[in-house]
Amino acid sequence: MTPDQFLVTVGGLAAIGLIAWFFWLKRSPGVKASIVSDGYQEQMILVKGGYTPNTIRVTAGRPVRLLFRREETAACSEQVVLADFGKSALLPTGQVVPIEFMPGESGTHEFTCQMGMLRGQIVVEAA
């Protein structure tokens, strides 16, 4: 093995490790939804190439209102689906679309675009 081949191999392995770590292993702690005047836990989510924030922490047993605002026209993100809560909504560009649900027991629930390409999660924590 020549020195350049050695360097490319080591560099390639490092790149593979970096990709696996970056996309699969590192997880952000997420954002805790704030409680608003009507008692809901509320969080605004920006839809642009993904969901920002993409991890929302909520407390079990208190109603949640997620406010989705889509700021792009790419067809991929035109719909958001919260399959575990049986909810979905079309997201017209530039409009705020609320989705409300009552989180039950603690656990993690995904929300995705219709094709499952854009992903976020709702982490329900015990009260």
Binding site: K87, A89, P92, V96, V97, P98, I99, E100
Partner: peptide, 20 residues
């Protein structure tokens, strides 16, 4: 929030969720 047009999402029960 109140100055923005809200398009309500729906649930299977047919109830309209979200503030108007």
């Amino acid at each position: 929030m109140t100055s923005t047009l809200h398009t309500p999402a729906t649930d299977p029960a047919g109830a309209v969720s979200g503030p108007q």
